[in-house]
């Protein structure tokens, strides 16, 4: 009976039940939907920012406000953490757990470095007079959107480093699976991707 049933399942369409449609288990499906939902939070902020920016004519010129070399450094750092994360995921697939753990740890440390740079940037801008409700360069909303958007991204990076630390410990203790590490990687790359949006839409445009 059960043999027949499993044969039937093998022939059956992926949408027929008993098998996962997109070749992905519930964890992966759930994480992707979480990423979409979380991404839409940033979409909300960025759309609001775009709206605010379109509705005024005195939006500050980004190159006057931000130091582009510094920003480049932040971007390079975050992109590098993406690379080490990918290496960690690949090590997990090869089941080289200590390599994997090391790379996760390195990713987390680079994440912390990014947060440090961001704190530095905030301090610098605050010293220049940027506040939530005022700034010396132009439209008032500029400061508010800057702190909210980069703040929320920083919060995600911070959450990411906590997740990474936990994952590194679990992997070190051989209590992790390749799929688990891959999911940590998905989240981290998502945070990296959000930065690409923020970098272009807020800092460059």
């Amino acid at each position: 009976m059960s043999l027949q049933a499993s044969a039937a399942v093998q022939q059956a369409n992926r949408w027929d039940g008993g098998v996962c449609p997109f070749g992905a288990g519930w964890r992966t499906v759930m994480l992707w939907w979480f990423i979409i939902s979380d991404g839409l939070l940033f979409a909300g902020f960025l759309a609001a920012y775009g709206y605010a920016r379109l509705s005024v004519s005195n939006w500050p010129d980004a190159s006057q406000v931000f130091s582009l070399p510094f920003l480049t450094a932040m971007t390079v750092v975050l992109l590098a953490s993406g690379a080490t994360m990918t290496l960690a995921v690949e090590a997990a697939r090869r089941e080289e757990w200590s390599t994997c753990s090391t790379f996760i740890l390195v990713t987390g440390l680079i994440g912390l470095a990014f947060l440090g740079l961001q704190a530095w940037e905030w301090r610098h801008l605050i010293a220049d007079g940027a506040r939530m409700n005022t700034n010396p360069w132009g439209a008032v909303a500029f400061g508010a959107y800057f702190f909210v958007i980069t703040g929320f991204h920083g919060l995600h990076v911070f959450t990411g480093t906590v997740v990474l630390a936990t994952a590194a410990r679990r992997v070190w203790a051989r209590r992790a699976t390749a799929v688990g590490v891959e999911m940590v990687g998905l989240y981290w790359h998502f945070v990296e991707m959000v930065w690409v949006f923020i970098f272009t839409l807020f800092y460059l445009l």
């Binding site: 039937a8 039940g17 996962c20 519930w26 499906v29 939907w33």
Partner: peptide
């Protein structure tokens, strides 16, 4: 609500019994 929604989506996607196709 988000947690509960994630759960429902993933459940409908991946936890259906054998033969329970989307169109059933």
């Amino acid at each position: 609500f988000t947690l509960s929604g994630l759960n429902i989506v993933a459940t409908v996607f991946s936890e259906r019994a054998r033969g329970m196709s989307m169109w059933r």
